[in-house]
Design a binder for these strands. Structure first.
Lengths: 334, 334
DNA sequence: GCTGGCGTCTGCAACGATGTATGGCAGGAA
DNA sequence: TTCCTGCCATACATCGTTGCAGACGCCAGC
């Protein structure tokens, strides 16, 4: 059997509760007593039973993270950073993959997963604000990403529109005039795809370059779709001198698709992405992209969530954080 | 407050324990009683309190996964698959990143992390078998990877040596004679690097090609090191007509490094990797590599661990599983 | 010398579930 | 009838911790 607080109490010649008080930094304990208890703890190798503590206190010191797929590089990096940020503050992160399935997202909000965690970081993809509001009980919830913009919820996001505009502006200032966009989600305005497309259009307007719907290729954000999309454009005879992949894996897929077809990058077509995943630096040619300040996103969202969990942040309305971004100009679009 | 079993019992007009019995599929319950209880559960929206259940039963239905860095593509994909495999069997996975720091690895074996989980999947990098044996308490433990080969422990691994030999054989049969190896770990024989290097040497021997130490570039398995290593070889004037990156990110880094220096792949130098991460298919040129049967690794290791946890597998000695592999021939080394 | 307050420590109950032991009530065997 | 056995349900203790209320001793103040 494991050593319990009772064993420690007996060994130190104090009551159970005094041991508990020592462990919880209760103020009024004589230094001598405290020392005796700590010695007993060390001697017996006592470790607090986290399950019992959770049952009693109602806190698990775990935070939930819901995202579609941990194997996507952007999410993998984000998860890694979030876990480190949480760890620094004494929390663990429990990850749930939704596979972008609505039912899974709903269950993560209220099922056993929620019960195991003190607060939730949630990337909603398939469900809307009302569904979230209806399901999410009293526990703290911070949304990640941009699919929901609702004053009821805390949200940590990036400057999608500005960053996309800056990136498009960079392409235009390099003399490109026909910038294809890959990965649009038609009809969506609040999601990353919609916002980034908005930024693209704004940059075109500002430069006086006409918008051509033929240049917009809709698809899901998967690597192979990037390659397929440029192949489609080439096959349809659509002329373009630059490609803006709405995220990096799309752009990298597009890069691959172009090179396969013998199109030179960046001489004939420039390619740019969004996210600045590790891989972007080491592609050939290396990928021009936007760095979304992931470290800031991780730090701020964990900070905000823990503040809520521990009752430090209690402003009623949803707090809205926008992390900064940085243009990473590399070989694919100098 | 949340609904408890007591509320359900009252609503159904039965005792607390009867509700518990219904939930745990106890055999002798009258169908009518069972129905009444289930109705009450549905009506009140009762959900079992997992923390209380854990405290009482001593099981958490969580498995621990210790790896160095979740943002490495190989680990991200592995973690994703492990989580799905666990989920199918009613378990969750709690991930701990060790950053390849010995202390963190040791603490994962015995600290609070261990307490939160019913069993552990562990990728040891910095600590040896004796350290593991000394720290790991009575709970089930399955090792992943190849740094430890000890009959005391269960181990799920891949056929590193055979696969590396097959890959090297492929390069040789394509007419290459000077195959550089990137990512060796000098002095290591049991780890992935050592085993893969062994396979390389065996394939050379079998083909009667002499081994040249000048072709072996030691470095840590990071993307940038791949590029740096080929640059180093080129600068030193070492001649080579193929590069074997001991994992894919090294190979991709090398690919990048070669292309930057104007070396044509595969015309002048062939490049091959190991792991078959998603990115390998979409590199330019696409990367020849070895697919290590990750799905099988995930399935077998989770299966083995849960068998241990639930007491189905109780053979004393360590079970040793080797997943199959497949050569993925692509453009970088046709 | 009594009261009041402060510092220090203690006992009891409770968190919400499950294991053990046991108690009824049938119905069949002795 | 009596005893036993099989089915169904219950009461109580228990897992290891923390919150609450209070007890105890000591000193200051009057």
């Amino acid at each position: 059997m494991a050593v319990t607080m009772n064993d420690v109490a007996r060994a130190a010649g104090v009551s159970l509760k005094t041991v508990s008080n020592v462990l919880n930094d209760y103020e009024f304990i004589r230094p001598a007593t405290k020392q005796r208890v700590q010695d007993a703890i060390a001697e017996l190798g006592y470790e607090a039973n986290l399950t019992a503590r959770s049952l009693r206190s109602g806190k698990t010191k775990m935070l939930g993270l819901v995202l579609s797929d941990l194997s996507a590089p952007y999410y993998a990096e984000l998860a890694s950073r979030l876990m480190k940020a949480a760890s620094r503050r004494g929390y663990r992160v429990l990850v749930e993959q939704s596979d972008a399935v609505a039912d899974v997202e709903l269950n993560a909000l209220q099922g056993p997963f929620r019960q195991l965690t003190d607060g939730l970081l949630f990337t909603p993809l398939m469900i809307d604000a009302d569904a979230i509001a209806a399901r999410s009980g009293g526990k703290p919830l911070v949304l990640l990403g941009e699919h929901i913009l609702d004053s009821r919820f805390d949200l940590v996001t990036m400057k999608n529109e500005e960053a996309a505009a800056a990136l498009t502006g960079h392409l235009l200032s390099g003399g490109r005039r026909r910038v294809a966009v890959i990965g649009a989600h038609p009809g969506e305005s609040a999601g990353s795809a919609g916002l980034r497309l908005n930024g693209y259009r704004k940059a075109l307007d500002q430069a006086g370059v006409p918008f051509d719907p033929a240049l917009i290729a809709p698809c899901e954000w998967r690597r192979d779709n990037g390659a397929a999309a440029v192949a489609g454009l080439l096959d349809q005879g659509v002329e373009f001198d630059a490609v803006f992949g709405l995220n990096d894996v799309l752009a990298l897929g597009a890069l691959h698709g172009l090179l396969i077809r013998g199109v030179r990058v960046p001489q004939e077509v420039a390619v740019a992405g969004f996210d600045d995943i590790d891989e972007a630096r080491f592609a050939s040619p290396s990928l021009t992209t936007v760095s979304p300040g992931m470290e800031e996103i991780a730090e701020r969202s964990i900070g905000l969530l823990i503040d809520r969990v521990e009752g430090r942040e209690s402003s009623g309305g949803g707090v809205h954080v926008e992390a900064g971004f940085r243009l990473q100009v590399r070989e694919s679009a100098p």
